[in-house]
């Protein structure tokens, strides 16, 4: 029962949040509603038996990306969106996107149902160990080592570069320029 209630809450958060994020005019509200949707998604991950993924979702998407988006919205000249009018073409685009998404979702759900059927036949769909942190660690440092390593290097370079950009201001000639 508690599982059902929580699942319903997560799913509702994810779907309603996303719908509202796409439809409200206020940019900042849209960003915050996106956060609600992301939070709901994290809840859904929990129901798929992936607490690690759920936590990472919150750390990266809410703690990182959402905050970045919130910052970016503040640079907009029209945060409240009072001057915004949706051009007609956008409605067609929205319709097309919705259709495509619905198709993809249908395909995915059908795939899931088939997979479930196959599982009932005795074939496990998902390797059971994947959910655990140990297994994810093994995969990241084993089969997926190269991409993981590259991503790490990329992030480190970005970090060092950020520090270097700030350091640039401390050079005498730049400081003289500022003065």
């Amino acid at each position: 029962m508690i599982a059902l209630v929580s699942f319903a809450a997560s799913a509702a958060l994810a779907v309603v949040g996303a719908l509202l994020a796409a439809s409200v005019r206020n940019l900042l509200h849209a960003a915050l509603l996106l956060g609600v949707s992301l939070f709901g998604t994290a809840g859904l991950y929990l129901f798929l038996g992936q607490p690690w993924l759920a936590c990472v979702q919150v750390v990266v998407y809410i703690g990182g990306i959402l905050v970045l988006i919130l910052f970016a919205t503040l640079f907009s000249s029209d945060i409240t969106g009072s001057g915004q009018r949706a051009p007609r073409a956008l409605w067609f685009a929205a319709l097309g996107t919705a259709l495509t998404t619905a198709l993809a979702a249908w395909r995915l759900v059908r795939g899931g149902v088939e997979a479930l059927a196959a599982r009932r036949g005795g074939e496990p769909v998902v390797p059971p160990a994947v959910g655990s942190t140990d297994a994810i660690g093994d995969l990241l440092l084993g089969a997926w080592f190269a991409p993981f390593f590259l991503a790490g290097v990329l992030l480190t370079v970005a970090l060092v570069a950020a520090v270097a950009i700030v350091q640039r201001h401390r050079r005498p000639e730049v400081e003289a320029e500022h003065a």
Partner: peptide, 12 residues
Amino acid sequence: LFVLATSGLVVV
């Protein structure tokens, strides 16, 4: 990780 994730909500 859960601690890091949830305490990040304060930022928002």
